[in-house]
Amino acid sequence: MLEHPAAAPPLSSAGVLIAGVDEAGRGPLAGPLAVAAVILDSTRPISGLNDSKKLSAAKREALYPQIIERALAWCVILIEPDEIDRLNIFQATMTGMSRAVVGLTPAAHEALIDGNKLPKDLPCAGRAIVGGDALEPSISAASILAKVSRDRLMVAMDALHPGYGFAVHKGYPTPAHLAALQQLGPCPQHRRSFAPVRLLLDQARLF
């Protein structure tokens, strides 16, 4: 799933476009992985950018529309649970990062990737930056878009799959989520390859 990139103004031939790339949702047992890429506009700065995990939900929601409005380009990709199960979470993350960068219009000349690994099929040069979501504003912006996009989806998913508490824990393996899994069993949004879900499915096959 691809959210529409923002319309970008014409660029000068001398402009070097650097995209920040980050993800949200590697650890949850349910729901998609969200990956975002953002090219910021240096002429339209955004105050308060930081690692999304260090910001309150209210602050992330306030920054989200500013990033959408002021960025030269942005793209959010969702990797659904079935693809995560097929690829594994690491490969799904690498795939999502490449897709997010490919989805940018205009295209980036370089991608700054949060973490210590680079996707092999990036469409441009790339640099991996450990802790980049707190160091590079473009990665911070990407982390916010990914986190807000995913959290909104998990809130909506709570109404489709009631009883699991998705609106509260966003699919992470909290005690309440694990208890609901035991009681209700997995729903279509659960990641079958993740240990707690796989164990329940294996037990169901046995009995």
Results as ranks from 00 to 15, higher is better:
F194M: 01
R127F: 06
I144Y: 05
D82W: 10
R86W: 11
L40W: 05
W74F: 15
A179H: 08
R127Q: 15
A7R: 15
L122S: 00
Q189T: 03
M154C: 00
A36G: 14
A111Q: 11
L63I: 11
L49D: 03
A57F: 07
S149V: 02
Y64F: 14
E80N: 08
L145I: 02
Q183S: 00
L122W: 01
P28V: 06
D85F: 02
L11S: 14
I68A: 09
D133V: 12
L49N: 02
Q91D: 06
G27T: 02
S56M: 12
L2W: 10
G132C: 13
S52G: 07
L200C: 04
I39V: 15
A100L: 01
L2V: 04
D158C: 10
P5W: 10
T105V: 15
G115S: 11
P28S: 11
D82Y: 09
Q189W: 13
A34V: 04
T174K: 06
V21H: 00
G15K: 13
A57M: 07
P173D: 00
A92Y: 05
P175H: 06
V197E: 00
Q91M: 11
I68C: 09
A141F: 02
R26H: 03
E80L: 10
I68H: 10
A24Q: 05
L200K: 00
A141N: 04
P119E: 04
E3I: 05
L135K: 11
L135P: 05
E61W: 03
T43D: 15
V35S: 08
G171W: 10
L104R: 06
A146K: 11
I113V: 13
M157S: 12
P9H: 13
L78H: 08
G132T: 08
D121L: 15
A6S: 15
L2K: 09
T93R: 09
A107L: 12
